[in-house]
Design a protein around this nucleic acid. Structure first.
Length: 503
RNA sequence: GCCGCUAUCGUCUAACGGUUAGGACUUCAGAUUCUCAAUCUGGCAAUCGGGGUUCGAUUCCCCGUAGCGGUACCA
């Protein structure tokens, strides 16, 4: 602790029950932004206290995806690339001084604190069966009462409980909740939240399999790891009073809480896998740029004010403010993401964009190692303003690599006819043949050709439509000059010759 | 059922209690043009309802309505 108070520390604490999804990305981002803004630190903690729901490779996916999006954390599990060991666990190392950042590896710690609560009398053993609890709940619902555990096992003496445990009876440990009064806190986003204690359930802290529940593990770790601000999804808002009671029972100071509005499906329900794509990895695979994804997700539920739409991560850090986060959920607007991704693609330097696109072209079988690098770069330059995702680079570029099949009708402009087209294309070919290779660059070529058309008194449409379709074989395509430039003089002239034969 | 949260164009959002309620995406029209895309110009489109408070409510308060979240030995 310094004279400026404790260092700001936040955490992103996902459970590895699948792949990192777009909502998790935003939570991670806001945590990251808040940490950077305040010169604090950002930690990653894996909350895998439900062994049933653990997904193989989930931890790696989270780490890799965060890394792809450049949301680097200061503490947390890291992948040990050098150790090529089969088991996931041994591939993961720690970065930071708090022991493991994976909760399943911290079990003794939770056990220690839950025992302390038992000693203090703020937690108790519970032996009630699932059936009994179910029955109780039904009864409460029928009577329009809040559903919660009735606290039957509170009256068990410690000695009695220990005897039953020795006899092998299954048990859980629950938190005692005060019967009266209410629990209140000031949320950084939602403001004052107050819940009457009579509505708070006696939360299970330790499950019968010896694992802690989220509530226990979360509170213990946040405290032990020095977390000052808990920034998490709004779905946690209703259980925050339980956490506060837990902090109090353990005699620990409270962190600040900031709950984030939910990300929603188009039907306004909580974002889920069932409705469209939510895995960040899938977006990345389709060719959404990490910067675009970050930009998009940052503006869902928060806004730096003003009319700007495109921001760098640095700008986001500069402008970020927990207090200006919205309170209502946000539906993902896919069209806007596409537009934004297109903007990022347009802003990319060609060399860089080419490198990003080549894997997609290879996957589609359009290019190989032997393909001319220059040709690929030219194609990328032409397509840059047209594609919304990297994946789209594979659409409608086949003709660059393969001679098109012509149909005579395609070659004729709407205001022209077959005979005229043939004549014009033939004279155009002669003209192009006379042009030196150096003039075969899109802008120069356009200038020269336009000048020639004027001189010959030929309508641009009469000449350029056939020229373009001869080069591409497509109704819709980039301009004839771009195409000729990309294909090169020899190939371009050959295609025009082939086209003339069809007329 | 119970508890909680929320409410501005279709969507994301802006608006010290005073604005012709602004911007972006989408969409439509026009310009440009050999086609597509891009670009430029313009248009359509919103304060959930009812009460207060106030000279004046999108903004503050209450009620209603709707939506969502929670209600697990899931997180």
């Amino acid at each position: 602790m310094s004279i400026f108070g404790p260092k700001i520390k936040v955490r992103f604490a996902p459970s590895p029950t699948g792949f990192l999804h777009i909502g998790g990305l935003r939570t991670a981002l806001y945590n990251y932004l808040f940490a950077k803004k305040n010169k604090g630190s950002f930690i990653l903690r894996i909350e895998d206290t439900d062994s049933k729901r653990k997904v193989e490779g989930g931890v790696e996916n989270i780490i890799n995806t965060l890394h792809s999006c450049e949301l680097n954390y200061d503490e947390g599990p890291i992948l040990n690339q050098k150790l090529k060991v089969k088991s996931q666990k041994s591939k993961i190392k720690e970065k930071g001084n708090n022991g493991s950042y994976i909760q399943s590896e911290r079990l003794p710690i939770y056990k220690h604190y839950v025992e302390r609560l038992i000693e203090k009398g703020t937690a108790y053993y519970c032996f009630c069966s699932a059936e009994k609890l179910e029955e109780e709940k039904k009864k409460q619902q029928a009577e329009k009462l809040p559903t919660k555990y009735g606290g039957h096992c509170i009256k068990n003496t410690k000695e009695d409980a220990e005897k039953r445990i020795k006899n092998g009876e299954k048990y859980v440990i629950r938190l005692k909740i005060p019967e009266n009064g209410s629990t209140e806190f000031e949320d950084e986003v939602y403001g004052k939240i107050s819940i009457k204690n009579e509505f708070i359930d006696h939360q299970v802290l330790l499950k019968s399999d010896g694992f802690p529940t989220y509530h226990l593990a979360n509170v213990v770790d946040d405290h032990l790891m020095g977390v000052t601000h808990v920034i998490r999804g709004e779905e946690w808002l209703p259980s925050t009073p339980k956490h506060i009671l837990l902090y109090e029972a353990l005699g620990w100071p409270l962190p600040k809480f900031a709950h984030l509005p939910l990300l929603l499906n188009p039907d306004k329900s909580k974002l889920s896998k069932r409705q469209g794509d939510v895995a960040v990895e899938d977006y990345l695979k389709k060719g959404y740029l990490p910067e675009a994804l970050i930009n998009f997700v940052a503006l869902l539920g928060w806004n730096p004010k003003g009319d700007q739409e495109i921001y760098t991560l640095k700008e986001f850090i500069r402008y970020f403010d927990l207090k200006s986060i919205n309170k209502s959920g946000a539906v993902l607007n896919k069209e806007k993401l596409d537009w934004m991704n297109g903007e990022y693609i347009k802003a990319k330097p060609i060399k860089e964009l080419t490198e990003l696109c080549v894997p997609y072209l290879k996957d589609a079988g359009l290019v190989t190692k032997k393909t001319d690098k220059k040709l690929i770069e030219k194609i990328i330059k032409i397509e840059q303003g047209r594609i919304k995702t990297l994946q789209e680079i594979t659409e409608g570029v086949e003709f660059f690599f393969k001679k098109p099949d012509y149909v005579a009708e395609l070659l004729i402009w709407k205001k022209s006819d077959k005979k005229e087209t043939k004549t014009i294309l033939t004279t155009l070919l002669k003209f192009l043949e006379t042009l030196p290779k150096g003039k075969f660059e899109e802008e120069k070529l356009e200038k020269e050709t336009q000048r020639w058309l004027k001189k010959e008194n030929i309508n641009t449409g009469d000449a350029l439509w056939p020229m373009r379709t001869a080069l591409s074989g497509q109704k819709a395509s980039p301009s004839p000059f771009e195409l000729a430039w990309a294909l090169g003089k020899a190939e371009a002239l050959q295609r025009i010759k082939d086209a003339i034969k069809k007329l």
